[in-house]
Computed example of a mutant assay.
Amino acid sequence: MPFAHDIITDISERVEKFARARVREALADEVFAGSGATDPAASLLLERAAAALTGGKRLRARFALLGWRAATARDEPSTAALGLGAALEIFQAAALVHDDIVDNSDTRRGHPSTWRALEAAHRERGWVGDSEAFGRSGAILLGDLLLGWSDDLFEEATAGAAARRATRAVYQRMRRDVILGQFLDVSEEAAWVRTPDAEHAERAMRIAVLKSARYSVAQPLELGATLGGASDAVRRGLAEVGAPLGLAFQLRDDILGVFGDPSVTGKPAGDDLREGKRTLLVAYAREGMDPAERSRFDARIGAADLAPDDVRALQDLVRNTGALERAEAVISDRADAARAAIAGEELAGVAGDLERLVEATTRRET
């Protein structure tokens, strides 16, 4: 199999080629014919959509291609497998666009988030009305457009594949899970006050599984394997890798959301604390606080007026409970479980690449 950077390049080129074709198709529509110039609003939407597809580690595509390779024992990915990976990356771009609106995130990978970029474009062009409202509305529509493109590419890539129907069923379940998980995440920011303290970790675990653990690792592996017509043994082996590794992936996200370096993550320090995220790390931290500390923590996490000093105080409070060490121990344990599954005979052909992705997902800084 090509090295990771080759796969990333191949997937990125497939995504960009598809996006360019969709942009040309839209701008060539007869509704714009005879206007003498490209419609500036349509161009803005399409340019920002294409921009949203650039960058990233392409982890979901890489997991999907490894699932396909485990099923087929072929080194070079097929056109269908590359298309599946690219469709996953377009879906991820759509999810991030919408996620940044939900979370009020100003930045993504060190650049203005899509809704903020559209807000700035509205202001720079001297258009009337509320620039921020325009940015949010435009980004919702842009994310919807990307979701449609993801589906279009999935259909195009899997046309004629023997396992198309089964692969589509996995893809549909993935979409359901991540949207349900996102809604539970949003709900928990409001509903936690009615949840008994003893249940916070359980609820956070459920959100983590739906929102990220399945979607980021387990389901991409399953998608690739299904497209490739994997045996039951290979599918079981990949599932035994995906479930623990997916949870480790999300816990690493939780840690970066509280303790990540802004110069590396491209997000503000303590971003999850600013947004009031009720993650598994936060649940672990609350379990280690006395009632007074817990009350103080709950009163400040997610507060609109959090200053840098407040963020540092909350970070210290989380760290002092031992929650960080506990989360790191769970990551290590789940990574070990994934490695044990990788050692199985049915995954021998992809073991080295899977091992490298265990490292990439659990030791990352972004």
Results as ranks from 00 to 15, higher is better:
D6F: 07
D6C: 03
E13T: 11
A19S: 04
R22H: 05
L27N: 09
G34C: 08
G36Q: 04
L44G: 12
G55S: 02
K57C: 00
K57T: 01
R62S: 06
F63N: 10
L65R: 02
T72F: 00
E76V: 14
L82F: 07
G85Q: 09
F91H: 13
V97L: 02
T107W: 06
P112H: 10
F134K: 14
G135C: 01
R136G: 07
S137L: 06
G138C: 03
D144K: 00
L146C: 02
L147T: 08
G148W: 13
G148L: 05
W149Q: 09
L153H: 02
A157E: 00
R164I: 05
R165P: 00
R168C: 09
L180E: 07
P196H: 06
P196L: 12
D197V: 10
E199W: 03
H200C: 08
R203P: 05
R203S: 05
I207S: 03
R214K: 14
Y215W: 12
A218I: 11
P220R: 03
G224F: 02
G228I: 07
S231V: 13
G237Q: 06
A248T: 11
A248G: 10
D253E: 04
F259I: 00
T265W: 04
A269K: 14
E275R: 11
G276I: 12
K277I: 06
V282I: 15
A283C: 08
Y284C: 15
E293M: 12
A299H: 08
G302M: 10
D316G: 15
L317D: 03
E325F: 00
V330E: 10
E345A: 15
G349A: 10
T361C: 13
R364F: 01
E365F: 15
